[in-house]
Design a protein around this nucleic acid. Structure first.
Lengths: 335, 335
DNA sequence: TTTATTTACTTAAACGTTTAAGTAATAAAT
DNA sequence: ATTTATTACTTAAACGTTTAAGTAAATAAA
């Protein structure tokens, strides 16, 4: 039961605990022979230092927190894979917090993290964020890198080229013949959502299409709500193209179209931000704006570790390019 | 910078640190008036206890570890959601370890967990496990509940009705007219994989179909390898039905069939263990054996917390029923 | 040879919390 | 009135590690 401690190692070897500690950390203060004796014994007894004791003493946890809106989503899951790769390499542990897109939960987590439980934070902001004071505060207290879903006040972040990718997607629909392009909006209070919307607007202008308010559907966190709104859009406004700023909503479009027997891409073409790995197996295969999810996690973690190494590294950012992958959901159908 | 400590609270209130500590934990040793003074001040200064100090003293981390084969998989992601729900409610934190289906990584993690960093462990075993000594060992040291992918030696676990669900899936194919049913096998060294295979065998017998070795495809962790094997199966053996014991392999079947222009369900019918939430949007919609992923995480966590509360609770298990959801990939086609 | 430096350790305090043991004052029981 | 119990605290040690400061011996420089 009782785990082996430095004290016990010291007793066995008839040296002080200081010697053991230093030998294990390979300090120059310890002679080669003693070092080896200590290290050999430690290995043979399968000693591993108590993380609480060393965390307490060193004010360092070797742990980073990751706050995510959700985990059952290929984008975030892949991002975690990227984060994990970097963190493991550095010997760090990963504490996961799921906000389920609730800023209330998020605030609770952020408060918890002030206890110095972790050395740093990687975060993607929740759907319904509107008050950013907690986020402003955490950045002052804890090295924090935002990824994907960022806000105006973020100092360190990794984002997509959201404006450009939304622009390209919208233009792609135009080029495929759409003249009535709807936009399914989400998290427009965040920089990420705002940029996507602006990209859409800019593309409309560029293509000479008028902006129509009824083509914008603001979706919230409630599944039924957004289903109803999309259904309304499809029955009343009947767009011939849809840009969805979030994967969830694109799926709902598919369900609505199934229900209403609307043909994709015949009646309406759809393109969505999505990292669904079965996008090409859907019926029809979905044209996606695919983010570099793994890379994004990796980059965010890399920036965080830079900051942890050198704490006067106060602002940095990286933009990754999302890729428009054209599939059948935006095919031109010759009748 | 410097976080507020109990010492500082004590100094301000002119009481001892013991009093503060006890007041915060609502001890009966402290008078109501003092208690209130302490709690009010703590709240107003946003005090939160240093988790390292209290972890060191109490030998308790309020953290549980979760070891998963992968996270970019709806089953595991939903299981994490279930775990998260229970853990948050109990005020626990979640440390995530991804084995990427490597038992080597897994062993490394298990070793790390011996440092008493966490109070308990929830685990789903990696794909290529063959030596179970690490698993035997961890169960002696740390309350551990296995879920989904378990092994013979597991004391606490939550599983599917793997035998029955594989039986039902196989029989379903038989009832849809399949007489040459292939089985895509994975992690057969684990109890989970073994049970699924036995369920398949039993159904063959029950339906009066002969067992043919060439209909079994053993798939490993390597994506290209298993693609090749499935391709061989489809070109050489040409089964009219496939039971896939893992979602990944079912997707590969779809890709192979796309490539070879094999019609699903006309030429071959497919059923797979899968929690893909877009299963119904696939082309064709995939008949799945859908596990109660969220429930499984929740149940596993619940058992773990029972053990944490009462440590002579040494063996327990729960079986959840996976559901066969029939979709077009196993439809009977009338020619 | 004397002094300064380097090497290889040890001592002891510190990190922030918890808790067993002690104490003084008050209330209850005899 | 004396003993016993209860209440509301305090003292001090402990959890296991790290590290600043000290020390004695060996080596190098003067």
């Amino acid at each position: 039961m009782g785990e082996i401690t430095i004290k016990q190692l010291a007793q066995i070897l008839k040296v002080s605990t200081a010697t053991v500690s230093k030998a294990l950390r390979d300090s120059h203060e310890i002679g080669a022979a003693t070092k080896k004796r200590v290290q050999d014994l430690a290995k043979s007894l399968n000693y591993s230092p108590n993380p609480f004791a060393s965390g307490l003493r060193r004010h360092k946890s070797n742990t980073i927190a990751v706050i995510l809106p959700e985990i059952a989503n290929n984008f975030f899951a892949q991002a975690v894979n990227g984060i994990d790769e970097v963190a493991r390499e550095k010997g760090y542990h990963l504490l996961i917090y799921l906000s389920h897109d609730s800023s209330e939960r998020e605030a609770f987590f952020l408060n918890d993290l002030l206890s110095r439980r972790v050395d740093g934070l990687l975060m993607s902001i929740s759907f319904d964020a509107s008050d950013f004071t907690h986020l402003d505060a955490i950045q002052q207290k804890l090295p924090t890198v935002f990824f994907d879903r960022t806000y105006e006040g973020s100092l360190l972040h990794v984002t997509n080229n959201d404006f450009e990718s939304a622009f390209d997607a919208t233009r792609h629909l135009y080029e495929c013949g759409c003249r009535n392009i709807a936009f399914l909006s989400a998290f427009q209070t965040l920089k990420t959502g705002d940029q996507r919307f602006k990209g859409y607007l800019s593309a409309l202008k560029h293509c000479g299409l008028p902006f129509k308010d009824e083509l914008i559907v603001h979706c919230n966190n409630n599944k039924n709500d957004s289903y109803t709104r999309i259904r309304e859009l499809m029955t009343e406004i009947k767009p011939d193209g849809i840009v969805s700023s979030i994967e969830k909503l694109a799926k709902q479009c598919y369900y609505v179209c199934n229900e209403l027997e609307i043909n994709i891409p015949g009646d309406v073409k759809i393109v969505s931000y999505s990292n669904l790995d079965s996008a090409s197996l859907l019926n029809p295969p979905l044209t996606t704006i695919t983010q570099q999810a793994f890379e994004m996690g990796k980059e965010a973690a890399t920036i965080l570790f830079k900051v942890l190494k050198n704490s006067n590294y106060k602002a940095d950012s990286k933009i990754l390019n999302a890729e428009l992958i054209k599939r059948r959901s935006t095919d031109i159908i010759n009748i």
